[in-house]
Nucleic acid binder design. Sequence first.
DNA 1: CTTGAAAAACGTGATGT
DNA 2: ACATCACGTTTTTCAAG
Lengths: 156, 156
Amino acid sequence: MPDRTPSPLDLLDDIGLHLLRELQRDARLSFADLARQVGLTAPAVAERVRRMEATGLIQGYRAEVNRAALGLRMTAFVRVRTHPGRDAELERFAAEQREVLECHEVAGEESYLLKVGATDVHHLNRLLVLLSAFGATHSTMVLTTKLTGRVLEPFA
Amino acid sequence: MPDRTPSPLDLLDDIGLHLLRELQRDARLSFADLARQVGLTAPAVAERVRRMEATGLIQGYRAEVNRAALGLRMTAFVRVRTHPGRDAELERFAAEQREVLECHEVAGEESYLLKVGATDVHHLNRLLVLLSAFGATHSTMVLTTKLTGRVLEPFA
DNA sequence: CTTGAAAAACGTGATGT
DNA sequence: ACATCACGTTTTTCAAG
């Protein structure tokens, strides 16, 4: 048994890349529209996309919502130097708090890096107080986001 | 002239939130499916979603692709303390490099925080060398990502 | 992968409450 | 703001090439 996963390599030919770009740009394009873009028929495109999903190349389709419209007008990155043995607790806390947008375990002086949203400085402060229970924190406020959600291309 | 934007407040009732959750979970759901989920008809749902897009509440629909499958097996956050007057140059560089996934202007000792992808440590090192032209850098390698792409709920 | 075809599901616009 | 209906389109599944 050679491969466990059907290796997405053959999916990344010219047409596959074209499809991947289009779906990153607009995930709600119909198969018929996609077919017109890449010069195939709709069933052929549907099968390609289905294989991209099955191999895990495409992990899902997400609506991108305006955080500010939901009240999260500010963004911050918080580095946490966890107290010994509190890693699991911090991860559970991060998973429970809707304000925690991302949570990464990292190498270096701190062991975690969180991306958090907050309505205002008071809200952010409350979060930081809660986080300080797990370790020393260092936070960095985002002034303006210059770039996000880039369309990815293959590097390998 | 009261409001310039038709204020998405009325879009965030129970049904609106339900729709928003579903579309964050699976952006390719049909209007008919969405209608069944929330208990409305398809045309009603289509109009609601169209208004969510028009008001900017929904900013788009993106396919989420597996970065590792595209060759970007490692992720790092890089803080850059830019040299005086080089901010615009750094922003242009960040926009040009496909490896730069996010670029934020931040408050604190450093003025920029970048999220970058790379194929391996050599690739990452090449990036850091290029970035060092714009200022002093401090990079943090991601070991494992515990949380990302959370479904957002309103806070206001 | 294409073509063709057929059935089910879907999107859209008009109309009415 | 929503329901209903009607029409055209899309999706899906087959077949055969």
